[in-house]
């Protein structure tokens, strides 16, 4: 609450501008033009792309770990994935800078470089462990009776997986994916290095040119000499608000999965 209040308090000039003038399309803070629309759109672009990358690799990994991997393998991979959820993002940032941004520049010529494509890959990899471990938990939380009933009817393990386990666990898996999306949206340091040349008033359309997202804009101002943070508190407030809404959805979803498996007296 205190965070909410203090961001509201310190970002007041900007937020009041939004309330009075509506959201404008240009973000030029030193002229007093605080239009967050391009930044928000870019941020969602980043979030959705990263989520797709993380989901394509993460969810199959979770299914494999939960059902098909043997225990020894699982006992190695699961803890390592859990550790990697806290992987220092600054390291991923410089790795992404030296591998992926360099690769994009080599392929597409010098002006191209950091941008949406690089962020999708790097931040997607970053939220992969989160998506994988949490959806693995969700899949394992599916009651054994359901699976056994299906297996007892002669279904193969894969049929059981696609027709029973995954549908039952789907709210949990969706929650994991949204959590990964939240991570990706708020990710700063990894994206900081690979965002390319940014224009905060433009909605990024070219995936290999620069993209300006909320978190990176804040970080850039924080690194600068002037540190005129006031407008950025407004942005921080917006980011926090988006994450809060995502969290509300996640909470609903995890409750839904709990409802499938009522607590039993055992």
């Amino acid at each position: 609450m205190a965070i909410f209040y203090s961001l509201l308090h310190d970002g007041y000039p900007v937020i009041s501008d939004w309330l009075l003038n509506g959201f404008r399309m240009k973000w030029i803070p030193h002229q007093g033009i605080y239009g967050p629309i391009p930044l928000v759109v870019n941020t969602f672009n980043v979030g959705i792309g990263c989520t797709i990358v993380a989901t394509i690799i993460g969810v199959p990994t979770a299914i494999y770990l939960a059902e098909f991997a043997d225990n020894r393998l699982r006992n190695i991979i699961k803890p390592s994935l859990e550790i990697l959820t806290g992987f220092p993002s600054i390291i991923l940032g410089i790795v992404g800078l030296t591998i992926i941004v360099t690769a994009i520049t080599t392929v597409a010529g010098p002006p191209a470089g950091g941008g949406l494509l690089a962020i999708w890959i790097v931040v997607g990899i970053m939220s992969l462990p989160t998506v994988a471990t949490i959806s693995e938990d969700a899949i394992r939380a599916v009651p054994k009776d359901l699976k056994e009933a299906s297996l007892g009817l002669g279904a193969t393990r894969w049929q059981t997986m696609t027709r029973v386990t995954v549908p039952v666990a789907s709210p949990g898996i969706l929650a994991a994916i949204l959590l990964g999306m939240g991570n990706a949206i708020g990710e700063t340091m990894a994206a900081f290095y690979i965002s390319g040349i940014q224009d905060p008033s433009a909605i990024a359309t070219d995936p290999i040119r620069g993209v300006a997202s909320i978190s990176v804009q804040i970080a850039q101002e924080a690194m600068s000499e002037t540190r005129a943070m006031t407008p950025y508190f407004g942005l921080g407030f917006l980011l926090f608000f988006i994450i809060g809404v995502l969290n509300l959805i996640i909470r609903r979803l995890s409750k839904e999965q709990l409802a499938v498996d009522p607590p039993r007296n055992r």
Binding site: M1, A2, I3, S6, L7, H9, D10, L179, G182, I185, G186, E187, T188, S215, I218, A219, A222, M229, Y232, F233, G236, L239, F240, I243, G244, L246, N247, L248, I250, R251
Partner: peptide, 26 residues
């Protein structure tokens, strides 16, 4: 509980902004 969860999901840059506003400045 909901606030704790939201706080857990809050991006670190937002926590940083809060720290800057509250601890550093206020």
């Amino acid at each position: 509980r909901f606030f704790i969860e939201t706080l857990a999901g809050a991006p670190s840059i937002v926590i940083g902004l809060f720290g800057f506003a509250y601890f550093v400045r206020m």
